[in-house]
Simulated assay, not measured.
Amino acid sequence: MESGLMSPSLSLAADSNQTLTYAKDMSNFITQVFAEQLPVIKTGFFNVHMSQGVVITPHWHTNATELVFLISGELQTSVFNPFTQQLMTYQLRPGQVSQFPPGWFHWLVALTDNTHLLTIFDVPTPDIVYGGDFLRSLPPEVAARAFCINPVAYAQTVAPIQKPVILGPPPDCSPAPGSGKSNQ
């Protein structure tokens, strides 16, 4: 039996609204329950609230499987299968789930306002590698050699990514000229 289960201060309850992980604004935020909030837990989750068009930016987990459970709203999940080189996209409605294996690059987009979901992990502390952090850390000369792209254009493109972007687009984002889309 685990020693934590024998502790006189054992608690088997936590409030997922108490620990704010990230807030973009009052309608788009993430709270959590992981080992820090519930020490005997072998899993954990993020409690996510999103508005239409907001994205949990592309990322992957080196050490965890993630299960997305949609509580309300509509959500699109996308994951890149590294074995088949295929992008797999699913549209979820309340009660439906999507799963991401460790190391698989993925993202989520809220299709409606008041989207509420849990992202549940099989470890008490998941590693998270954000695509934006990777892009802004990749030296332009390496991008040029690896992908035959203009290093100056690459540097200009990733320059606005100054810190991790968890729920995108960032508040100061403006559409790229002529694209009708975000420049980040």
Rank of each mutant, 00 (worst) to 15 (best):
Q37A: 09
N28S: 10
V54N: 02
W107S: 11
V55Q: 15
P102T: 11
P170D: 05
H59T: 04
K24L: 15
G95T: 03
R93L: 03
P170W: 07
M1Q: 10
T57F: 13
F100H: 07
V48N: 01
M88E: 15
L108M: 14
T112N: 09
Q32C: 09
S137R: 15
F34Q: 08
A176V: 00
P8F: 12
H106D: 02
L108V: 03
P101R: 15
P171N: 12
I120Q: 02
H116W: 07
T119K: 07
H106F: 13
A144S: 15
I128Q: 14
G4A: 08
H49C: 06
L167W: 01
T65W: 07
K42N: 14
P101V: 04
G180Y: 13
T65N: 09
L10Q: 06
T19W: 04
L70A: 05
N81Y: 11
N81L: 08
T84I: 09
S9N: 12
P39V: 12
E2M: 11
Q76N: 11
V55I: 15
E36C: 01
F69Y: 15
V54L: 03
G103N: 11
S9M: 03
V97S: 14
F147T: 00
T119V: 13
L10F: 14
P39F: 11
P140R: 08
N183E: 10
A110T: 03
N63C: 09
Q18T: 12
G131I: 01
G132C: 10
H59D: 01
H106A: 07
L138K: 09
E74Q: 15
S182I: 02
H116P: 00
H59L: 10
A153D: 13
W104V: 00
T157Y: 05
L70F: 10
E36M: 10
S9T: 12
A144Y: 07
G168P: 03
L167M: 12
P126C: 02
P160M: 07
S174V: 13
R93M: 02
N28R: 09
L108Y: 04
I56T: 04
P169E: 04
Y154W: 11
G132H: 13
Y130M: 13
S174K: 13
L12N: 07
C173F: 00
A176F: 13
L111H: 01
G95A: 08
A143Y: 11
A23P: 00
A143M: 14
V158R: 05
V55G: 00
L12W: 04
L87R: 08
I120G: 01
G131K: 05
H61M: 06
K24G: 00
R93I: 05
V165R: 08
Q184S: 11
M88Q: 12
I128F: 03
F134T: 12
F80N: 01
T21K: 09
T77G: 07
P164E: 12
H106E: 02
H49K: 12
V79L: 08
V158E: 05
H59K: 09
L138H: 08
V165N: 06
P151K: 10
T21L: 15
K163I: 00
G180V: 01
M88C: 05
D133C: 14
P139V: 13
F29L: 08
A155K: 14
A64P: 05
P171H: 13
